[in-house]
Lab assay of single mutants.
Amino acid sequence: KELVLVLYDYQEKSPREVTVKKGDILTLLNSTNKDWWKVEVDDSQGFIPAAYLKKL
């Protein structure tokens, strides 16, 4: 599985998104959309702007 590093805090703005903190390491589930990547946070899944993430 691929991991990503969160570069900036992000507060979810819709139920399909997730809240993350700078420095979090998350599992990347889908990066086919260049603007929004799907990640797994704890036991939930959701989208975060790709610009907030860096592949490890």
Score class of each variant (00 low, 15 high):
Lys1Cys: 14
Lys1Asn: 10
Glu2Cys: 15
Glu2Leu: 11
Glu2Val: 13
Val4Arg: 00
Val4Lys: 00
Val4Ser: 01
Leu5Thr: 04
Leu5Ile: 12
Leu5Ala: 04
Leu5Lys: 06
Leu5Cys: 09
Val6Ile: 04
Val6Ser: 01
Val6Lys: 00
Val6Ala: 06
Val6Asn: 00
Val6Asp: 00
Leu7Pro: 00
Leu7Asp: 00
Leu7Trp: 03
Leu7Phe: 03
Tyr8Lys: 14
Tyr8Asp: 09
Tyr8Cys: 15
Tyr8Asn: 10
Tyr8Gly: 06
Tyr8Val: 09
Tyr8Ala: 13
Asp9Trp: 04
Asp9Arg: 03
Asp9Asn: 07
Asp9Leu: 02
Asp9Cys: 05
Tyr10Gln: 01
Tyr10Lys: 01
Tyr10Ile: 02
Gln11Val: 14
Gln11Trp: 14
Gln11Leu: 12
Glu12Gly: 15
Glu12Gln: 15
Glu12Ser: 15
Glu12Val: 15
Lys13Glu: 07
Lys13Ser: 09
Lys13Cys: 11
Lys13Pro: 05
Lys13Ala: 11
Pro15Leu: 08
Pro15Trp: 07
Pro15Val: 08
Arg16Ala: 11
Arg16Ile: 11
Arg16Thr: 11
Arg16Met: 13
Arg16Lys: 11
Arg16Trp: 15
Glu17Lys: 09
Glu17Tyr: 07
Val18Gln: 04
Val18Ser: 04
Val18Lys: 07
Val18Asp: 01
Thr19Asp: 05
Thr19Glu: 04
Thr19Cys: 07
Val20Cys: 07
Val20Leu: 05
Val20Trp: 05
Lys21Pro: 01
Lys21Phe: 08
Lys21Leu: 06
Lys21Cys: 10
Lys21Tyr: 09
Lys22Ile: 04
Lys22Thr: 06
Lys22Met: 07
Lys22Arg: 11
Lys22Tyr: 04
Gly23Gln: 02
Gly23Phe: 04
Gly23Asn: 05
Gly23Val: 01
Asp24Thr: 10
Ile25Cys: 05
Leu26Lys: 01
Leu26Phe: 03
Leu26Asp: 00
Thr27Ala: 10
Thr27Trp: 12
Thr27Pro: 11
Thr27Asp: 04
Leu28Thr: 01
Leu28Asn: 00
Leu28Pro: 00
Leu28Asp: 00
Leu28Cys: 07
Leu29His: 03
Leu29Gly: 01
Asn30Ser: 13
Asn30Pro: 04
Asn30Met: 07
Asn30Ala: 09
Asn30Asp: 15
Asn30Val: 07
Asn30Thr: 07
Ser31Phe: 06
Ser31Asn: 07
Ser31Gly: 11
Ser31Lys: 06
Ser31Asp: 14
Thr32Lys: 10
Thr32Pro: 04
Thr32Ser: 14
Thr32Ile: 09
Asn33Met: 08
Asn33Gly: 08
Asn33Trp: 06
Lys34Cys: 12
Lys34Thr: 10
Lys34Ile: 09
Lys34Asn: 11
Asp35Phe: 15
Asp35Asn: 14
Asp35Val: 13
Asp35Ala: 10
Asp35Glu: 11
Asp35Tyr: 15
Trp36Ala: 03
Trp36Asp: 01
Trp36Lys: 03
Trp36His: 03
Trp36Tyr: 09
Trp37Pro: 00
Trp37His: 02
Lys38Ile: 14
Lys38Val: 14
Val39His: 01
Val39Asp: 00
Val39Gln: 00
Val39Tyr: 01
Glu40Thr: 07
Glu40Met: 12
Glu40Tyr: 06
Glu40His: 06
Glu40Arg: 10
Glu40Gly: 08
Val41Trp: 08
Val41Tyr: 09
Val41Asp: 05
Val41Pro: 00
Val41Met: 10
Asp42Lys: 14
Asp42Met: 13
Asp42Ser: 12
Asp43Tyr: 09
Asp43Ser: 13
Asp43Cys: 13
Ser44Phe: 14
Ser44Leu: 14
Ser44Lys: 15
Ser44Tyr: 14
Ser44Gln: 15
Ser44Pro: 01
Ser44Val: 15
Gln45Val: 14
Gln45Lys: 09
Gln45Trp: 15
Gly46Ser: 08
Phe47Cys: 13
Phe47Gln: 04
Phe47Met: 08
Phe47Glu: 04
Phe47Leu: 08
Phe47Asn: 03
Phe47Ile: 06
Ile48Thr: 03
Ile48Asn: 02
Ile48Gln: 00
Ile48Pro: 02
Ile48Asp: 03
Pro49Ser: 03
Pro49Ala: 04
Ala50Tyr: 02
Ala50Arg: 10
Ala50Gly: 05
Ala50Leu: 03
Ala51Tyr: 13
Ala51Cys: 15
Ala51Leu: 10
Ala51Trp: 13
Ala51Thr: 11
Tyr52Thr: 06
Tyr52Pro: 01
Tyr52Ile: 15
Leu53Tyr: 00
Leu53Lys: 01
Leu53Glu: 02
Leu53Ser: 02
Lys54His: 10
Lys54Gly: 05
Lys55Gln: 08
Lys55Tyr: 09
Lys55Thr: 07
Lys55Val: 12
Lys55Cys: 10
Leu56Phe: 08
Leu56Cys: 11
Leu56Arg: 01
